[in-house]
Amino acid sequence: MIRALPARLLRQTGPVERVAVAVLLAVLLVGLVVAPFTTSPVTELRGLSAWAPLGRDHLGRNVLARLVGGAGSAAVPFVWAWGVTALGVVACAACSWAGGLVRAAFGAVTGVLGAIPRFVWVLLALSVYGRSFAVLGVAAGLAFLPSAAAVVDARIAPWRTDPSVQADLAHGVPRRAVLWERLLLWECGPDLLRQTLGLFGFVVVLEATLAYLGFAVGEPWPSWGNAVVFDWGRSDVTAVARLAPLVTLWAAAWLATVASGPREQP
């Protein structure tokens, strides 16, 4: 069944989700593999500097190179956040399956996490534990957990008494196979993919917001957030160079939103 999972995800997703997944993978690839070699202000002009299809900013730096480097500051916190959320989702699935008090207790914890605004969580965490991508990612993952957990819980809790689950158990399928393989990966798989895209959008926007407000990646290091404002309103920089970071950020956020929205099952 696990081998058939990618085919199922492909069947269950529309063109927007597929594009969003492709963009996410591209950002991860660029952010984790290419960006580490461009993020330093000294080295960022190397390699990509000769070719500047998006123009240069008023300090003569390659805008494309800065966007590529900015992907790094989105990708690294995303990987942290995804890890934290994934652990939380696994715990949530186990609690929903257990039902009763265990499920209620987990629901109370996510309720508390969800009551404090996500942005406030992240801000406090960065302030207390120091500014780093790891702290940013872990805090973002915890802040995102309530919504991911709500989706998983709403799916798994009703399955406990579902005739198809009883049919599987009575057929002799082991409990762990029913819970982890069939319910979490198979049934929730498409939802988890959409939640992943939602988390990606959240982390990108969060990192850019903090960078814009001067609390995360600051100039001269590249981030999509500080690139948006760096050349804003300057007449000596081309319009493409000024708008490219803005459009990149907006498109990433929009794609993640549209692709992660819940939709009816076919």
Partner: peptide, 13 residues
Amino acid sequence: GRHSQLLTQDPRA
């Protein structure tokens, strides 16, 4: 699953 099997009421299940 050892000696018995169950056929549920709803064929889809």
